[in-house]
Design a protein around this nucleic acid. Structure first.
Lengths: 148, 148
DNA sequence: CTACAAATTCCCACTTTTTCCCACTATCAT
DNA sequence: ATGATAGTGGGAAAAAGTGGGAATTTGTAG
């Protein structure tokens, strides 16, 4: 199914068994979708409704070739780690341990809605990342204004 | 048999006898195929379902010539090391020691599904390789976005 | 051709991880 | 209070993963 309008920022904690509660607002929006989780471009995970993900993955696969180093790398980095998730009876997701590690998830996490997908960050990692980007945000904002 | 849609990223360990467990999801997908293992282009091994491998190997042979140094090189590097594997009763593969050496497999390994084949990396080698490629991935991703 | 060592295969047993359920607490509105 | 939703934790069965001994094959030197 195709979902848009995912938004909001929520805290949630990962337990020792690698489970994390999907915040209720997101759960509400996503309850009828299959979900796909994969590594994001930054140090986070991306959670997609299956419909949105399949658009992206097909586009990538169509353009990829065993003979092109770049497309192989994109496949390794984004397509391969993708895994289908289900929401358990308590509304939680099980994050595979390899994905926990790649995003550096420890315990306190952040869900960030980005319209067609949701990012999952380790809270500490995210604060760090945001600081690092603060100056870039200002530049990006000015640049953005020039386009209008 | 012809298999597509191989994906996922899995850890597995090579034991002292050169055996490695094929992760259960891949095992499920590959249980009815003969498998071919050969050296990959990067420092890894390539595991192909026989059907996909035969496409590739024929393609390579068709384009190659005794008189061209490059095609001889490709034959030596990719076709010659190819060996047929079987899955044992416990779901493991026996990796010939020459292939272990060429990919630098020690103990902790990574299986990476790439649609029509699976790569087998030494974990440490892969982490190193990925770091080296991280910026390239970001560029490729932006480029990809411009096409959509 | 035989005898011995090395390597491979087969099989069993153990450990770890994952999955499925259920129980408990907290908060809020009725 | 009471019942509903949100959030946490943990036990136990099942599945996945790991190691190693014994049997069998292979290869080699006498």
């Amino acid at each position: 199914m195709d979902i848009r309008g995912l938004n909001g920022q929520f805290n949630s904690t990962l337990d020792e068994k690698g489970r994390i509660l999907l915040p209720s607002k997101l759960r509400e929006q996503l309850k009828d979708c299959s979900l796909v989780l994969t590594r994001g471009i930054d140090k986070c995970l991306w959670l997609f409704p299956e419909g949105e993900w399949s658009k992206i993955s097909h586009l990538l696969l169509d353009r990829s070739s065993l003979f092109k180093a770049k497309s192989q790398m994109i496949q390794r980095r984004l397509l391969a780690p993708a895994t289908e998730l289900t929401i358990d009876k308590n509304g939680r997701l099980k994050i595979p341990s390899s994905l926990q590690r790649s995003a550096g998830l420890i315990r306190d996490c952040l869900f960030i809605g980005l319209d067609d997908h949701v990012e999952i960050w380790d809270e500490e990692q995210y604060v760090e990342f945001e600081e690092k980007c603060e100056s870039e945000v200002k530049d990006a904002w000015e640049e953005f204004g020039d386009l209008g």
